[in-house]
Design a binder for these strands. Structure first.
Lengths: 149, 149
DNA sequence: ATGAGTGCAAAGGCTTTGCATTAGG
DNA sequence: CCTAATGCAAAGCCTTTGCACTCAT
């Protein structure tokens, strides 16, 4: 993420937090910085390492607060480990590819026409299932380039 | 699941386990029975309750063994709780709808043409990402019929 | 028979919480 | 200033494991 976009990211986060009376502290900025540079969702342990000097409990509390504020999204990988990524309104809509070999998760984007056919599929599902569908995520699994070699 | 298909299910499981020198015990049959009747993935706590008289540690050990044998599939829900369902070779390929309100997960199936367009999307991804893709799952989120009312 | 499975209790690992202190707006 | 956030240690919760006993094949 470029410097300019980076500054805008922090501004977006700050505005969003301020509106909820949540403070944008140094530790939280480090978390957002780290996540914005990551190629895919990060675990708490990875963030603990990559943010430097953000204590465990503060990290977890910040992650919880940022999740509740809609700044980031928490999921769980195949091992049940919590993984965090910036929310889609900050990064843009994307999907995930999970390596069945090493477990790494990589962000991937679909082209317009692919995303459009996904939307058509969802519209059909909404009708046939009785659910009021609000979002979707396609997760593909396979072997990543570095495990393939 | 009908009685006949049910019997076939147990036979499939038994054959698969026998081939790996894993025994198909009463407790494990209860787990398979419960999962085959569930409308979506079950947690360990739910299985503990629904199987009756399968002790905690035995349940977890059976789930681990059955997962490793490819009989069932373990995932984790939004709260990080492990959830189990029969593997797709036993139930058929399907996807999940997650209720953003109550957290319930329901199995859903796509029609042939929808599944075919998903496959086309995946083929494109395989080319553009350099991954060797082997599977996919589409998770849709929304509000389930019972939470909508 | 004989090794896999069971069942209880104890341990593990990730995450949350209590509380006194610090610092952001 | 005044309340949210921090940071340490302690507690929680789901899941796994040690060990002696039991049962499936």
């Amino acid at each position: 993420m470029s410097a300019k976009v980076h500054a805008e990211l922090h501004e977006s986060v700050r505005r969003s937090l301020t509106a909820r009376d949540v403070r944008y502290t140094a530790g939280r900025r480090k978390v957002i910085d780290t996540l914005s540079e990551a190629p895919g969702p990060r675990s708490a342990a990875e963030l603990l390492d990559e943010t430097h000097d953000v204590p465990l409990s503060s990290l977890y509390r910040s992650l919880t607060v940022l999740d509740e504020a809609g700044i980031l999204r928490r999921q769980h990988d195949a091992d049940g480990l919590a993984r965090y990524e910036l929310a889609e309104w900050l990064t843009g809509h994307h999907h995930h590819a999970v390596c069945t070999d090493c477990g790494s998760v990589e962000d991937i984007e679909l082209g317009e026409s692919e995303e459009a056919s996904l939307d058509r599929i969802l519209a059909g599902l909404s009708r046939s299932t009785g659910w009021d569908l609000t979002g979707h995520s396609l997760e593909v699994e396979g072997v990543c380039p570095s495990c393939r070699t």
